[in-house]
Write a protein that binds this DNA or RNA. Structure first.
Lengths: 326, 326
DNA sequence: GCTCCTTACGTCTCCCGTAAGAATC
DNA sequence: GATTCTTACGGGAGACGTAAGGAGC
């Protein structure tokens, strides 16, 4: 018996298959059903929890997982009283299939809405500061202009978002540049100027400040995986050779602002974020001279044709980001 | 009821879903089963043909297709006495899902062979001239060194192969450069020198020939979609301003060689191809001066992590191509 | 005792295959 | 009449749900 693919030929394609024969049916019995329950169980971390979410009896899930493990010939979870933990093989499977399942659902949504208004789910990742500024307007416009589209917004740091883009876990992302070419299509949406934020009455004299002025002052900055931190450290190093004093590491800018307001130190944020969340009387805002800035970049995942829903949401996202970040 | 994804949260992800509620089960009933039969029917073009290939009774396929059409709410085929022809919506679906199904199978193969020898299917596209030279050695080494790997070789022209790469229909490709960056990772494997081939006794005087010497002579060259043709025409234009006389357009180089042997004209081929297929007494081979050459490029599809099987086959492919093309 | 996951069994859905029907060349 | 796709019906595989069992805190 010859493999299925060997028996027919698309025009323009000549196929040679080695080793000779192979029956496709043998390994074609995997169904989405089983993979979907796997992904849910893996992400939730327990059968009972997944049972609640999926509204399927827990023994049925147990059986599906066991059958999946038999089908791939690998143990995918370690069971314990604490739930289900992925084995390395299970992690490999999750990483590979979850993005594919998402794309499959999207493809079906795209065909379902063929010749109609765009429909389906669109997942967008943004860095927290941009998300905080843009999310409301984006959600509002998508709800009004694309009622058939479900929007998922995910916050994350640029480094994580890049991983998600490459694994196709997200459909579009707003991250901070420079737009390093990782074989992604990217477009610069805005250049976000960074500003110094201090509690009212505790800032430097009005007017621009130099990076050197930060020396020895207690600062509240995000951790080193955060792009903002790198920009500031690099500027401090290059411009004045000073070393920064990090009083507190706070990843969430809202927390940083609270700490600044409490007088624990200064922080640095994009001007658009400051204008929106630090505009009340509690803070003093100072620009840098020379300017400190970051590129705000719109990045697409590699390859695959986007759905119309993604294209439309992207257009709205670009407009709103450019508008709100000036 | 709240959507499934809304109810659990991966660490580091904060999700906002709009519009509010959505029951995932509603549209999650699609199964691979149905999509696989769709792809087979679409590629084969008839239910009866697919019935033979898939070894499933034809009425069962008919029913699956009807159910799929109901599930996506679109007519996917036009039926006729001549078989099943894809509608535009059907074409959209095929283009989107066939690559995804292939990746899904690959992912499962990768996990099945976790911590073992690489296994699964690897699809490689090559331009015909390279395929003719490299295929045998590649197939031999893969069969010996990677017995668990099924190799699919597909011949095509560079322009088609680029489409396949972007749709992820192939896992790796050897094409002709220049390695235009279409957001593909690409590596130059060799530079293939082009040579003039004439029937024995009908060539120009021994020694290098100039492109200008081709003027007015009847040539047997592939069609204009073929990269080789473009290279030659461009050289003729730039180097001497002459216009070529195309006696016959023949895409397959084996055919071209037969026509040359029959005395119908000259042709131009990569030196590696000529050395292998025109080395008998029937032909005379002449280099060009200055040289005419093309880059031979290894290109990967965008994104997605390759399987170990793909990596291993790629390594062999690179070695053999570099060796055989010098 | 509580919370996990697992095993066992009855019911139901879905898909397949066979057989017969309708349309086009 | 040949080929094509479609409709109708009976049997079987698989998945769910309920109920009961075992292990770790």
């Amino acid at each position: 018996m010859v493999s299925a693919r060997h028996m027919y030929c698309l025009p323009g394609r000549c196929e040679i298959i080695m080793p000779a024969c192979r029956v496709y049916q043998d390994c074609m019995d995997m169904e989405l059903h089983r993979l979907r329950t796997f992904v849910a169980v893996a992400e939730i971390g327990s059968l009972s929890g997944a049972s609640d979410v999926l509204r399927i009896a827990q023994p049925a899930l147990s059986r599906q997982i066991r059958l999946l493990e038999e089908e791939v010939g690998q143990q995918l979870f370690t069971r314990s009283h604490a739930g289900m933990r992925l084995t390395p093989a299970g992690g490999e499977l999750l990483g590979r299939v979850s993005g594919l399942l998402r794309q499959l659902e999207q493809s079906l949504d795209e065909v379902r809405s063929f010749a109609q208004d765009p429909a389906g789910e669109v997942t967008i990742a943004m860095v927290p500061t941009v998300c905080a500024v843009v999310a409301e307007a984006l959600v509002r416009r998508v709800a009004r202009e694309l009622p058939q589209v479900r929007l998922r917004l995910i916050e994350g740091y640029t480094s994580h978002i890049l991983d998600w883009l490459h694994q196709r876990e997200v459909d579009m992302a707003v991250i901070y540049g420079p737009a390093i070419d990782l074989h992604l299509r990217a477009r610069i949406l805005a250049t976000d100027e960074l500003v110094l934020i201090a509690a009212a009455g505790q800032g430097p004299a009005p007017g621009p400040v130099a990076v050197a002025d930060l020396a020895e002052k207690p600062l509240i900055l995000p951790g080193s995986q955060h792009g903002l931190r790198l920009v500031i450290e690099k500027a401090a190093e290059e411009r004045s050779g000073i070393r920064l004093t990090i009083a507190v590491e706070a990843g969430a800018f809202a927390t940083s602002l609270e700490l600044v307001a409490a007088g624990l130190g200064w922080t640095v944020l994009p001007g658009s974020t400051a204008a929106r969340f630090a505009a009340d009387g509690r803070f003093e805002i100072r620009p840098f001279a020379p300017r400190l800035s970051r590129q705000v970049v719109l990045a697409e995942p590699p390859g695959q044709p986007a759905t119309r829903a993604i294209e439309r949401v992207t257009a709205i996202l670009s407009e709103e980001t450019e508008r709100l970040l000036r």
